[in-house]
Design a protein around this nucleic acid. Structure first.
Length: 575
RNA sequence: GCGGCUGUAGUCUAGUGGUUAGGACUGAAGCUUCCCAAGCUUCAAGCCCGGGUUCGAAUCCCGGCAGCCGCACCA
């Protein structure tokens, strides 16, 4: 057990957590004074700090640990990007709804057989088509609404006057795909190379629900690992291969198995994917999610995008059920190839062969000296076309005819020759495959709140681990007088100067102050009392046990640092 | 987007047409040498928004917004 948690109360209510979040400054409904806006939340001071801690730990694993390159791309992208990625078409589905039974249908599906390609029609054309053919609700024969377009991307326009259509990105991934060549070059042209991006993404959800679980504006941490298509091994895999994970494969029963078994038995398609499933599990445990409430579920065959060869979701068990936190997919070459096709840029890696190969090839070579006189200004274009012909197709012919731009040219054999060309081929270009771990920050943050939430007799404690806790220590003078307060301020400074957040509180009773810190998950509290004046020691209290030990006030920052890194009070002995 | 339920201080809640919307917790100031939401005093803070009905609306009606649940959607 990496991080033991007390089991959540059966009656735990997500409402209660959201209420705590609002009270204590983790989350606020956005634009509340104007009536709010569905699918949007503000992070308050503690929520923002918690989110930073989560993101920074992710950086630690991906950027420091695995050497991924962090980049930061614009949120707005021009239309061609999403034309290429497929989002524009995938998001432009049209729906009709039955006025009687309220069932809704893809309008183009209902129009199948009535038109060659209904997906290409506009709303009104499709509406007319359905109307003219008297199409009714397939389940109850009721009348249908006019087709509606559901575009889950937020559209905007870039520039004044003749503006270009732009969209708010529905994922951070595209920025990394379109920058493949820069990233690859930065990594000095070696595979594998990974890019990461942490930032906002936007989806105009039809009906956002369940607090942070379906937002219209949300945060992602995405990694795109570009790998050799034929080599999806991962050097560090051997170090983690015996890790056991709870897997729910798309065939066969759910089971706990080691990564090595999963790869050997082809449950997980390759080592690299398996490694990032491991890394995701490690991340989740590190930040303090309850391992007994995590699982990896493989996408069903029909759930997976057609180009993906394997895809696993990490799901966390919440009061809402099992909810997707992270998707880890082998996306093949789909994304890069799509951008190659649409942009014309070669988003490719170059693989150097072990030995350069000599390739001999018969090619057609134009004789400019002869052709120039005959074709004058058109020589270049005819010669280009000629040299593209396979040598076999012109061999032994007295005359070749070429169609260029709708014009036919007769070219006699003295205009060209067939030569043997020797070429040294030192490698080949290839389109890398992409392994994509994609994390939903807001969802994980909410899960962390639920998994950290404990309540006993209406006393709430958020059991954040030290690394995630937005406030690391409370600092209290037992009484706000007799000089205890100024000593406490010094103690607070010693903690904050060491780079950790400390919250000073001298109001009300000491118990209330402990309770306040427990409720925001501060791992420890330091109290300055009358004994401090006598012998220079303070008490330090552990949140989860409420036990305390005395340490010298000079050692408080060291003690807090140890507790933040996961140590218990026993580790403070001698301080 | 559809249907059902709901909306009173930061939180939880009382208030079914009639004085100044009541309470608890939280919060702030203070008292009490006070180590686990103790006690006491004082203070601050609210009817989601708009329209209608009515002499009078937190309360009834309509619309919007927001939340919950179900359906649909979630590349």
């Amino acid at each position: 057990m990496l991080y033991p948690h007390s089991q959540s109360d059966a009656d735990m209510d997500s409402q209660e957590i959201l209420s705590l979040c609002k009270r204590r400054g983790f989350l606020w409904p956005a634009y509340d004074i104007y009536g709010g806006l569905a699918g949007m939340y503000d992070y308050g001071p503690l929520g923002a700090a918690l989110k930073n801690n989560m993101e920074n730990h992710w950086r630690r694993l991906y950027v420091l640990g695995e050497g991924f390159l962090e980049i930061s791309c614009p949120i707005i992208a021009p239309e061609p990007v999403f034309k290429a990625s497929g989002h524009l078409d995938a998001f432009a589905d049209m729906y009709v709804e039955c006025l009687k039974c309220h069932e809704s249908y893809r309008a183009d599906h209902l129009a199948e057989g009535l038109h060659d390609n209904p997906a290409t029609l506009k709303e009104d054309e499709l509406g007319e088509l359905l109307n003219d053919n008297d199409v009714k609700c397939p389940s109850c024969k009721g009348d249908l609404t006019a087709p509606r377009k559901f575009n889950l991307m937020f559209k905007t326009s870039v520039g004044a006057g003749v503006s270009k259509p732009g969209y708010l990105r529905p994922e951070t991934a595209q920025g990394m795909f379109v920058n493949f060549s820069q990233v690859y070059r930065h990594a000095r042209e070696k595979l594998p190379v990974g890019a990461v991006q942490i930032g906002k993404a936007f989806r105009n959800e039809i009906s956002p629900r369940q607090g942070l679980l379906r937002l219209r504006e949300f945060h992602q941490m995405e990694a795109e690992l570009f790998v050799h298509p034929e080599n999806k091994s991962w050097p560090r895999f051997s170090a983690v291969k015996d890790t056991k994970l709870p897997l729910v494969p798309n065939s066969g029963p759910p089971r706990v198995m080691t990564l090595a078994e999963a790869v050997d038995q082809n449950v997980i398609v390759n080592e690299t994917l398996a490694y990032f499933i491991y890394l995701t599990y490690k991340y989740a445990c590190d930040i303090g999610l309850d391992p007994s409430r995590l699982r990896f579920r493989q996408h069903e065959k029909d759930e997976m995008a057609h180009y993906a060869s394997d895809c696993w979701d990490m799901e966390a068990e919440l009061s809402f059920g099992w909810i997707e936190m992270v998707g880890i997919a082998d996306r093949g070459c789909y994304d890069l190839q799509a951008h190659i096709n649409h942009s014309g840029s070669e988003l490719m890696a170059f693989e150097l062969f072990d030995e350069a190969k000599e390739v001999e090839e018969e090619v057609v070579r134009a004789r400019f000296d002869v052709m120039g006189k005959l074709f004058k200004g058109e020589t270049k274009k005819i010669a280009d076309a000629l040299s593209k012909l396979p040598a076999e197709s012109v061999k032994g012919k007295a005359e070749v005819s070429l169609d260029i731009d709708g014009q036919t040219y007769k070219i006699s054999s003295d205009c060209f020759e067939i030569i043997m060309r020797k070429e040294k081929v030192s490698g080949r270009k290839l389109v890398p495959h992409v392994i994509e771990p994609s994390y939903g920050v807001d969802r994980m943050l909410y899960s962390l709140l639920e998994h950290s939430y404990t309540k006993k007799d209406d006393y709430i404690v958020l059991r954040f681990n030290g690394r995630m806790a937005p406030v690391k220590a409370g600092v209290f003078p037992l009484m706000a007088r007799d000089g205890l307060d100024s000593i406490a301020v010094e103690v607070q400074d010693s903690i904050t100067f060491a780079g950790m957040t400390a919250y000073y509180d001298d109001s009300g009773s000491i118990g209330r102050r402990y309770a306040r810190m427990d409720e925001i998950g501060a791992p420890c509290c330091v109290t300055v009392d009358y004994e401090t004046k006598a012998n220079g020691t303070v008490t330090i209290r552990d949140r989860d046990s409420a036990n305390q030990v005395r340490i010298k006030k000079e050692n408080v920052a060291v003690a807090v640092a140890r507790i933040v890194s996961g140590a218990g009070l026993e580790a403070l002995e001698g301080l």
